[in-house]
Design a protein around this nucleic acid. Structure first.
Lengths: 210, 210
DNA sequence: TATGAAATTATACAAGCGTATAATAAGAAT
DNA sequence: ATTCTTATTATACGCTTGTATAATTTCATA
């Protein structure tokens, strides 16, 4: 009788954790949270189910790690868009708005992921903490962009005003992102970025288009 | 041996369906979609599990019905706020914005419900259709409010402009609603309605506060 | 009061879930 | 080469899930 045990290659812990997280994200994106079973994740990552428990003490841990990874990736995809390569602060803000409202940020699969996670934010303390952290990271960075734009225009604002502007602009981005991701076929190409630029421009009292 | 079979009272089909939907909503709101099992729903509604299959051919059907019910309820809570009792179109629009961004619309439990549902919009054709329908119902009604406000101010707009305004204002409401529901403790009382009024006022170029 | 439709309960089943634990293999260190 | 750590596989367990089906009970109608 031949040895039928599965052959495997030892990977570094970091690499294996990455693989498992990536497999989890792929499954949730395509099939929702209920598709991300321990067995499915293992199969998707090309390992056997038991290995998951070797890296994550519970399935919830893995889900939480995947959520944080996803949010960080989206934030990076938004803010890294030609950062620094643009002439001025206002132009950088406009680029940020556009990047937030076009692929790959605005994307049905990304939204499926996000929605799968956000539902547990209320219930699970760990997920709540991760959400709060990533939300403030994003909003604070947006607030800095806004502040820089005002300074560039010679109209510096105080912190209280900046906070309100950041909340409002973040809401516009979230809302449009949501609409565009949930019903992508009901908007023309470029319609959402155009509306975003016009709306945020109106809120801040500065011209962002062109 | 006494008869140990559970005693029950016959209810009208409509009433029983209502009860099952209400029980489903309560469970999803407090424990997420995974808490809404057939057995839990039945227990919450005070019936036995088999009855659910008598009214809904599959569990997905029940979930879909619950989603539609929830969205309709929220829409009603938003638009019925002193509707008609207010002096003018601009004031009605302002009241709508405020109602959208205060309890019971902006509420962690409502968001948990919504998030639980929205995740399946991509995957499930029936849920997608329900979402599209309720989304357009809401946005079209918002667009009418906006149109009336412009007319009242003597600045009527054409359909293309109104569409963009409705998309933008809906995004502001969605985004602020999301922020306020997901992290209710990070905003002061009345802060979100104030930001909503200021932002939508700026987008439309009209004064909504006061 | 008897009849019958259908609302409701009761029970069963196969599949899938997360988790625990022991056996094995790989690869680095000696 | 050998040893040893640990990454990885294999297997099993108890529980929950959604669904199917048959047995009952209720209540309106005749």
């Amino acid at each position: 009788m031949v040895n039928s045990r599965k052959q495997f290659k030892r990977e570094s812990p970091d690499q294996r954790q990455d693989d498992l997280i990536a497999a989890t994200l792929r499954l949730i994106a395509s099939g929702g949270p209920e598709a991300a079973t321990v067995r499915n994740i293992a199969m998707e990552a090309g390992v056997t189910p038991g290995l998951i428990r070797h890296y994550f003490s519970t399935k919830e841990d893995l889900i939480g790690a995947a959520y944080e990874r996803h949010m960080t990736t989206m934030r990076y995809a938004t803010y890294s868009t030609r950062e620094g390569a643009l002439p001025g602060a206002v132009a950088r803000l406009a680029a940020l708005v556009t990047a937030s409202l076009t692929a790959p940020v605005t994307d049905p699969r990304a939204m499926a992921l996000w929605a799968g996670f956000i539902q547990s934010v209320q219930r699970d303390a760990a997920m709540h903490a991760i959400h709060e952290k990533t939300y403030f990271q994003f909003r604070d960075q947006l607030q800095m962009f806004i502040s820089d734009a005002f300074i560039e225009l010679g109209q510096p604002k105080d912190q209280a005003d900046l906070r309100k502007f950041a909340i409002a602009c973040n809401a516009v981005l979230d809302g449009l992102w949501l609409e565009g991701s949930a019903l992508p076929d009901t908007f023309e190409t470029g319609e959402l970025p155009a509306i975003g630029l016009a709306s945020i421009g109106a809120i801040l009292g500065m011209k962002l288009e062109g």
